[in-house]
Write a protein that binds this DNA or RNA. Structure first.
Lengths: 206, 206, 206, 206
DNA sequence: GCCTAACCGAGACGGTACGTCACGTCTTTTA
DNA sequence: TAAAAGACGTGACGTACCGTCTCGGTTAGGC
């Protein structure tokens, strides 16, 4: 699951001293602490992480191949768990999918981590791909399923472009996260977005 | 206008040898060349920019206080000029506002620069603020004006949240730029977005 | 002994990887090679020493705090070993003390190093003090002892100023090294000096 | 006389604005001021000299080809005037020749300049040659003449090596200046040296 | 009383070296 | 064998000077 399992290829039972999971946690916690303390991402070096976590540099490199790989796991650790979909109506499911994004925009911890690490990660295609595949894509797929179910159940017109619709839902959240990080996020923002987009898309409309 | 004007405080007539504009251009061109050549942003050091542009390091630091400030000006240099609004209908104006974003997503030059520098820049609040103030905010204001004019002219319902509407227009473009940089951008994407959002928002509708 | 031992303060057993003595030697050898090759002292930068020795700059700065400190150790490495005093007569001991100075004036290797580094070093009081304490002063003390022994043994008048005598012995060697580096140094120069100075100082003379 | 006359080769009468002698003086004074203020020689850059003297860099380079050439003129400016020789006895003339050296060792201004610049200069053979030719050699020649006159007038034995004798006179002064800059210089030091060396060299002695 | 060449101050310019820091790898000791 | 420690070669950082080169502005003759 985590990226931190790059033990050199071998099958047999682990030999020698086993890796300490506590060490692994303390490294990730160390990075988070630094980010929360307002240390700019660019100032977070492997060397500093090692000092903060009270760990040798080699111990970090044994687990991750570089800063970016480490940050992917840090970002994952802040990822809210996949939301439980009520499954009653399409509208409520869509809101349930959007709500965690809004909530994360509020939490200072997640927020500061997101805004920094996220941006950083993007400059490394490989790392971005890993994050996209395990975090972004699954959510996209879930949204697609919800929308298709809505079409099947008569809650959504058949002729709309599912992809564009998805982007219309996610867009405002992203705009606020990326372009206007200080924007206020009203409690019913997810509902506002969903209702505004769905307006005029009900099957009984022209 | 540019960030590259940090001459030490004084008012009188310029003393000493004036700064060469040609040098300024060749530095920015140098960064662009590196980005186009596929050099990862993280590998673009001031030292390398200086070598590429055939320029001393001090000449760069004389103009920009660091890598990020330089990149703001690079990003600005790729910014498409403010679009000419037809001014006939709100719909056409909105499309005219969105179209350059789509087009930039296509152009390899702008694209590669955007996708990297943009992300990088975000980690520096000060730099981001500068970019936001001179590039993002003005566009936002223009969109607001267009939408308000639409309400005045009866093209748009009075009760809609202008801010949310703006985010719905920009959102899909941003989603594709940030989350799915490889997405295809159909020629009529701007029109699709505008029409989809405006559907059901005409004043004569419920 | 050497100046290159500035490990950060601690007493316990050395932790971490120990410093390589081979590296230390190759740095000093590198400087000597440059000097022998006729590179002017002013053109010998730490950066160049590092390149020549195939060593990182930090590896040099880990051992010496700057160019001057490094040069002290280089100078020390060229220092001829303390001469063995015959111990038979004062005259022969004095000649034995002077002879290495003459010889060094001849050797091209030592000479070129001496003439440059020596001068350079003097501009840093701290560094000069270190060199004086470990190289110059001990020799001075030895000469004093020899002269006092001479007085005790009746080879030298009791009323002469030991200090001035010492300077009279060393002076001509220094004049030739500092003011006339191209002067010829006849084989019996040491004997000439000693005899000339001692003339008229034997106790049985007025 | 000074090194500061390197006007580009031309024969005719000076055209254009003539160089300001005041500027020349203020540059040399500036260097002296820095040295007296205890600024280490290595920290005295042309740029700093220019700032101190309130002068453009080019104005300095127009006169001297580099730091060392400038320092030669600074050193010359501190040189005590050639001593007046009494011309009565060889002994008194020799003392008169040595006395200025002792006196300079005492003066803080000359001393600090000497001890630094002198050392520095030696690393540039060309510059050293210039200084040697105009300052050191003439003095040496004068001493030779005095000694030869002494031989002619029966004050000195015929068989002594004039050159070695000269070095024996100068040596102690140099030893104290170069090796023991803090040494005390008794008022009668010159006489002590001369008398000690001449002892036993009078023609009526064996 | 102009003209013009060289001066002057200031400071930009392409460079090089500074001393520091982080990179990712490599020893070393200890557990 | 893992772990902490820290040395290692590499190379970027941002600063300071190098010696050269424009700038606008002065300051002398020579006409």
């Amino acid at each position: 699951m985590s990226l931190a399992d790059s033990r050199p290829g071998q099958a047999g039972p682990a030999r020698g001293r086993p890796r300490s999971e506590a060490v692994e946690r303390s490294i990730i916690e160390g990075v988070m602490k630094l980010l929360e303390d307002g240390v700019p991402l660019a100032d977070i070096s492997i060397e500093r992480v090692a000092r903060t976590a009270g760990v040798g540099k080699a111990t970090i490199y044994r687990r991750w191949s570089g800063k970016e790989e480490l940050f992917v796991d840090v970002l994952r650790a802040t990822e809210p768990p996949d939301p439980q979909l009520p499954g009653i109506s399409m509208r409520d499911d869509l809101i349930a999918l959007l709500e965690p994004l809004r909530r994360r925009g509020l939490a200072s911890r997640s927020s500061v981590i997101l805004h920094n690490v996220y941006a950083q990660m993007k400059s490394s295609p490989k790392v971005w791909a890993a994050y996209h595949a395990t975090v972004i894509a699954p959510r996209r797929r879930t949204t697609f399923e919800v929308l298709r179910r809505g079409q099947r159940d008569g809650e959504l017109r058949q002729d709309v472009d599912i992809e564009l619709l998805n982007d219309l839902f996610m867009g405002p959240m992203l705009v606020r996260a990326v372009l206007r990080p200080d924007a206020e996020l009203p409690e019913d923002l997810a509902a506002q977005i969903v209702d505004r987009v769905l307006e005029g898309l009900r099957p009984d409309q022209p």
